[in-house]
Design a protein around this nucleic acid. Structure first.
Lengths: 131, 131
DNA sequence: CGGAATCCAAGATGATACTG
DNA sequence: CAGTATCATCTTGGATTCCG
């Protein structure tokens, strides 16, 4: 078992701060999708409205088809993104934020904008390349 | 070179939505640290106040020494976390949020709390395990 | 056009051992 | 206590190819 000392978190404490600190909290899963390298950008990119796969691909610099598809599936499965495929040829698929997705997206956008705004101070006195 | 078609983002567009969509935007670097698997939890864990290395280790379930150390270094380098080492034996090191760090931490906390609150709806109709 | 499948390189993470 | 170094592993991400 070699169980690590279990979190000393009291019940009230758990209620107050949530349970993300627990290793197997399901929130971590969603958090992982939302804060993933591409998840953040996909969510923010969808804020202006419905977009097609290739629109997103172009908009999000550097993303590969594979990652875009996977990220969209994660978010769709988390009910944050809606996917509508029209049965035409060539295929036409539209992605948009669900009401739920819009909420997270706005929060994530806020975070991103904060970083961009304060980037100057952050990079100010860097010593190492910091990876 | 095989250079991918450069982002077609117009100037005004860049100014409006920031430049995170550009593959080499430095914001992505910081974003990566802040939204990393452990970065999120470290920031939130530090909100209540100064803590020692082992405090954080215990608080954040599942994190390894290695990852905690590395994450703290990223955040310190990004000027989001302050590190104070007392020259005593055994070592005593304290970590805390900088004013800048506190701002991000609060935003991140908001995001985390939102997810925990809406977790029910998110997991509601899951079909796949969604990794 | 919008993927799915495959193969492979790079990076993240963990366990362990060692040190000031 | 607070790390660092090393090694093994698992995951992420990218390039390519193929398909409806």
């Amino acid at each position: 078992m070699t169980s690590r000392t279990p979190p000393r978190t009291s019940f009230s404490e758990m209620m107050r701060r949530g349970q993300v600190f627990s290793p197997d909290c399901p929130s971590r899963e969603v958090l992982k999708h939302v804060t993933s390298r591409w998840g953040v950008l996909v969510l923010v990119a969808l804020i202006p409205g419905t977009q097609r796969f290739s629109d997103l691909r172009r908009r999000i610099g550097g993303i590969s088809e594979r990652m875009l598809a996977q990220t969209l599936q994660w978010l769709e499965n988390d009910r944050l993104v809606d996917r509508v495929a029209y049965p035409v040829v060539p295929p036409h698929v539209e992605y948009s934020l669900t009401p739920l997705g819009r909420e997270v997206a706005l929060r994530v956008e806020g975070l991103v904008e904060w970083i961009e705004t304060n980037l100057g101070q952050i990079l100010a006195g860097r010593t190492t390349a910091a990876e």
